[in-house]
Design a protein around this nucleic acid. Sequence first.
DNA 1: CATATAGCAGTTTTT
DNA 2: CTGCTATATG
Length: 842
Amino acid sequence: MSLQPQFSERPPRDVNGPASAPYWEEPASSPYWDAPELAEHLAGQSVHGPEPDASPAILQGLNEAQQQAVLSTEGPLLIIAGPGSGKTRVITHRIAYLVEECGVNPWQILAVTFTNKAAREMRNRLDRLLLSRSEAVTMGTFHAVCSRILRRHGDRIGLNPNFTIYDQDDQIDAIKSSMQLADVDTKRFPPRAMLSRISAAKSTLQESRQMRESAYAAEDEYGANWIETCSRVYHYYEEALSRQNALDFDDLLMRTASLLKNVPEVRAQYHERYRYLLIDEFQDTNIAQYQLARLLTGTHQNLCVVGDPDQSIYSWRNADIRNILSFQSDYPDATVISLGENYRSTKNILQAASSVIAANTERIERPLFTGNPAGRPITLHEAYSADDEAAWAVDEVTRLTKTGEVRAGDCAIMYRINAQSRAFEDQCMRQGMPYRLVGGVRFYHRKEIKDAVSYLRVIYNPDDEVSLRRVINNPPRGIGAKTAQLLTRFSTDRGNTMLAAMQQIADARTEQLPCPISVTARAAKSIADLAITFQRLRDASRELAVADLLDRVLDMSGLARHIQADENSEDRWDNVQELRALAEEYGPSPQADGLGAFLERVSLVSDVDSYEQTDDALTLITLHQAKGLEFPVVMIAGMEEGLLPHSRSLDTIREIEEERRLCYVGMTRAMQRLYLLRAFSRPFPSSGGIPSRFLQDVPEELLASPALERPPGTRADTHPLNPSRPSRNEDAVIGGSWATSRRESRTRRGEAGEGTTGGATRGHLRGDIDEKLTEWVSSRPPRAPQPERIPLTVGEIVRHSVFGEGVVQDVQGVGDDEQVTVNFSSAGLKRLLVSLARLERG
DNA sequence: CATATAGCAGTTTTT
DNA sequence: CTGCTATATG
């Protein structure tokens, strides 16, 4: 390997480059991963010189808190960063500072991001700061990092390096067959719920044995019996995955943690390797990820985590906000910095968002502020139906773009569930508005894609039974459920894999021996043929580039013919071709394990990752996926009870508060203009048209009626709910779902009787036309008055939840930045941020 | 025993 | 609108 990695000759990164740029920000054949010599080489290049400059250029343009965050290079650091506080900027500047000013070898820096897209964006920013050597910094998601570590060192814990990564669909399949083996009724125990409980256990690094033990101790909403059954299925599931040489997403974390914990040499190697670890979106990490971070952080303790508890929206994926508290108790010496100033949004937007989030009770209050102008009022539009909501939104985007103020690419429509995107897509097509849909039925989850990928998976990992079962009769070749079951039994009886069993049948046929299992001659032939096909494909995979291999798979499996024979197959075939185009990037050298890299990418990449915000097209995106993005114009659609908050999240306060955070995340994506939209009727899922409770928390004075802004005579000037104007959608009134709901018709009568003329204004939200809403408002307990915080004084005695009692030694800063130094009797001297630490007086 | 078709239900968010 | 299951047919 060359010791001269031509850093500076690397072509400048194309920010608007192809969406298919490698997701893993370190190329598969990267020299950086395993070249200690390179580390030395880079160290030689580094600026070892004098102490870091007290005011280097890199700090220019940063506020005081941001500078502090950049400069706190040694020891643990917790950054609580509000929305739009320049968090990403702080992280990249910090990395640049470490490299440029402190002489840290970039090879020894690991930055963990939530999505691959975030990693790519961070890389782009770093490129601009560092000019060279930024490439040596490792960036990626926990899952990608773990996958990489396991492929390299997994053998130390008995792992085969060509493991398959199972996504949720595969997991469900595996759970189903595990339940069959465990003799558990899938009707009484829905596989999804099973998986969810098992995944929760895995996210806290619990194996099935521990889960079983906890079954009797823990109080679970389902009861001990349910947990006991779960742990049994979990046990079979564990075995199935291990037999198939497959890892699910949780395993990636779990196994890596176990590797680092149990193999000291490997741990030491990574401690040496990664001297500086940064974790973005820390509020969305789970326990396993946090443990992993701790294991990766050596005695140097240079662990920097950045997060915002108010933006924690992934608890359903077992993200655990307690990690932030754990961090503070695990690293009591940690520096804590709060970034409160918002550089993104107008005052109005920030205030509206703050008001919404302030209603959460399980929350530490933290003031946000901005020097930005007040900007425009928030627009609330109340549409008649989901279609009208979409029509109005697209109209509005058109109107804005016509004035030349904004481009379509500056606008985003956000919604709670993917199903909502359809109405907007339809409208965009009707009105000729270019749009960009993020997510939706995700590419890699499409049937034809999964089928093709499954063939590749079996070629790569012949033990992968989930994939084999998926393709064994796809396209249909006469191997039905019965035959598949016989095959499974035959293989398990012999202690063989399924593919090996098929091979045996093929061998028996060539030698004209009787078929070892009792299946029809046709089935036996099909099995044998498929086994031979796989054998050939496997041989071919050693010589062919991935794209060529894919071609051969499509041809030999009959999948190509099968897809093309279908009536409306054009889209599906296009998708396959798109997959092929992606595979092109993983040729032409099969020696470099292009197939493995390709499959890994297919498993770990998500759709947001390939999304570039530079298109001049309107963005349609879910609220979850919008995290970390920003747009000059944001419209949040479906501000209705049952949708936001979602009907499945109404059971507990905890869930509702997460929905509220989701709303907050959406609102704080907006820079200049924010629109909140709701509809009175919606085909599916029917929300009943009740306005979202979150709307109630937006102060009235921040809202405006769109009618006031709109020139007369334009389309949306007429409102179907206003009796003084003609309805523009008669069809919907008569034949639509309008009158189908009793509640809806009641609302409508009430509106007419009231004779409201204000159109879509806050007025009729607040009015008593909507009984449900009124009910809700009146039944809502009044918010407890917030006690005003009186600054602490030196000498005062305080109590901390973790450190116990102590005496205040010093107080600095005010408000959000108020910091105290406390001498705790048990834990000694600690510096704390008053706004974060739960300090009690006395 | 495999397959096609019709009828049914179940629909959050994603690494 | 789609992905599964039960049923009829080949």
